[in-house]
Design a protein around this nucleic acid. Structure first.
Lengths: 119, 119
DNA sequence: AAGCATCTTTACGTTTACGTAAAAGGAAGG
DNA sequence: CCTTCCTTTTACGTAAACGTAAAGATGCTT
């Protein structure tokens, strides 16, 4: 596994366009190093990209994903910020649990339809 | 529980605008009866609306939601249509299970952050 | 040197899911 | 009758998430 990547390598690996990756950078979700003019992605950037795509699959907006991702790099010292972070985590958790329940409900519905059809 | 509803009653109940409900009708996700000029929603319509909003919460587009909802009212006779329907159900199921896994992964990540913060 | 591949920035275009304003039609109450 | 409220249709506006040229820089290769 190399430890740096070009934009097209990542694009191919995750099956997205380079335009998409640059767009995530425009939105400050990804901030790769530069080799002169060219972008150069670290393995950490690659992990972030994976997180972004995971967030997208569950229906989060890029703004929401940025909020979640930023939790990783949040200040580990100031008490007030910590409280705010914990609150946000709780909100996200509640939302995710609602989504999980929604998904389970839909899965049950699909099961019902499947059974009623194969009769 | 009344058995019919006005558009604003449903809007208030589900905390959405009437514009949103009419938009769902434009996209053929909802087709209420009419009392002359006015829309009149049955309890079945109300259930459909609930399904629509559930689909939205998990990140489906209105088009995708329509596909899923239409599975309910799918032809219960033609064999070929049935096969196609079963295939679609399988695809949706796979997608939903991936989403469920994504959500569980994010929940775990949030847990990790929470612990590392409260140390 | 010329061509090709890959990178860059800039910028207008497109789709989805509504928001928002305009104009008009009942129906109910004072 | 007039106002107010709720409804309707029509239609332009908008934010998000990219798509899609266009035009130029850089390096490799033949």
């Amino acid at each position: 596994m190399p430890e740096t990547f070009t934009i097209s390598e990542l694009a191919k690996e995750f099956d997205i366009t380079t335009r998409t990756i640059r767009h995530y950078e425009d939105q400050r979700l990804l901030i790769p190093q530069r080799d002169g003019q060219h972008r150069i992605y670290s393995n950490k950037d690659r992990v972030r990209l994976r997180l972004i795509l995971r967030g997208k699959r569950v229906g989060f907006s890029l703004g929401e994903i940025k909020e979640i991702i930023d939790m990783y790099d949040s200040p580990q010292g100031e008490a007030k910020q910590t409280q705010l972070l914990l609150t946000k985590i709780q909100q996200r958790r509640a939302q995710l649990q609602q989504q999980k329940k929604d998904i389970e409900d839909i899965l049950h519905e699909l099961e019902r339809i499947e059974k009623s059809v194969s009769d």
